[in-house]
Design a protein around this nucleic acid. Structure first.
Lengths: 203, 203
DNA sequence: GATGCTATTGAAAAAAATGTCAATAGCGAA
DNA sequence: TTCGCTATTGACATTTTTTTCAATAGCATC
């Protein structure tokens, strides 16, 4: 007699939860293994679902990529605004807090990898949210430090470049050079901190 | 009568020249279109040869990737050493020259894209040459500025992170924010220059 | 010339990755 | 309970990318 087809028990989620589960798995893959690991098969495996499920929710692998970028940039912007708000609440030590938050976001949370991926694939269009966030934070911090919005914006841009560079390359570069784990991050943070303090002093 | 199979005239190169031709094409692809464009077909087309030719010279697509990384890191190290030598020959304005050379290398010459690619694919093993170059330049410049090799090395590391960040993200980020073409690069270069001058002043 | 070596190539196989589809199975609502 | 909706799935189809292979053709040497 023919054996019954073995059926695996299924987890049925709400659509949103299902998408979220998949995107979280994909984000982990991106952070740990880089964009090259974002294949349909690998994402599906990491999320614990069938490939067809991924297709069902995102339509195509590109759809998944797009959704992932949007998710991660959303998280990034949110983190930035939260840090700025925090700085406003607590002016003493605001600079230090903000600098650390910036470097944390780009290093630990994978934002630097996201940014690199976007750059290498030419998908900067998606980042309008980032522009608005930078504008907003610049206005806020300019007022706080007593400098023009434009000057604050420039400082933020340098800070971003530093944090992205350190977040993306700091660990590996430090390891390559036989330096302590956080040296490069600390050096970069020091540069930014000095810059912010100087600006505050001048105002 | 059966038509003769049309044959395309072939260019037969020395093995080394053939490899070089292919690698140069691949390098251009990497710089202009990012690592995702490094498919066998695209590289072969860019180099003007058949796919099988690429396979013949590099064994596999991974072999090509490896060879390309080695080639580009070699160029990078060479440029770094040349810039350091130049600085030694001409101490006045050495800082400015060096800073500009650093940013040029990482922005225009594609080194930042290479570095990002290496980082995202986890291929930092290949960079021992870079470590040695940094060591060497640090010793040189430390002596020139009158500071310890270690301090010089730290400054170089910050400079690298800045230049890589600016080279990789500067253009796109500036454009996104509606800034002048070179603003971010110039800001970043200014930060590094200030740092170097301060170090020189202290010594 | 003729010969040997091997870089080069087109074509086709193999492998990898993406996409399609009909059937199944949770789950909430009637 | 039964029904309807649809998230989920395995199996298969399609497309893309890599790899193999036998034949060809430059070029140096004799």
């Amino acid at each position: 007699m023919p054996a019954k087809k073995p059926t695996v028990p299924r987890i049925r989620r709400q659509p949103e939860a299902a998408r979220d589960n998949i995107l979280a798995a994909a984000e982990g893959l991106l952070i740990r293994q880089g964009p090259i690991a974002l294949k349909l098969v690998e994402v599906a495996a990491a999320a614990g679902v069938a490939n067809a499920t991924v297709m069902h929710h995102f339509g195509s692998i590109d759809g998944l990529h797009t959704a992932l970028m949007e998710r991660m940039t959303g998280e990034l912007v949110e983190a930035a605004l939260a840090a700025a708000a925090e700085a406003d609440m607590n002016p003493d030590g605001a600079i230090e807090t903000t600098v650390q938050a910036l470097f944390d976001t780009f290093e630990a949370r994978g934002a630097a990898r996201l940014a690199a991926w976007l750059e290498l694939t030419g998908e900067w269009k998606r980042l309008n949210g980032v522009r608005d966030a930078v504008n907003q934070v610049a206005k806020q911090q300019g007022k706080r430090l007593g400098v023009s919005t434009d000057a604050a914006e420039d400082m933020i841009l340098v800070g971003l470049v530093l944090a992205m560079g350190a977040g993306l390359f700091g660990r590996s570069l430090g390891q390559l050079m036989g330096k302590p784990r956080n040296l490069i991050r600390d050096l970069a943070a020091g540069v930014l901190r000095a810059r912010a303090l100087a600006m505050k002093g001048l105002a």
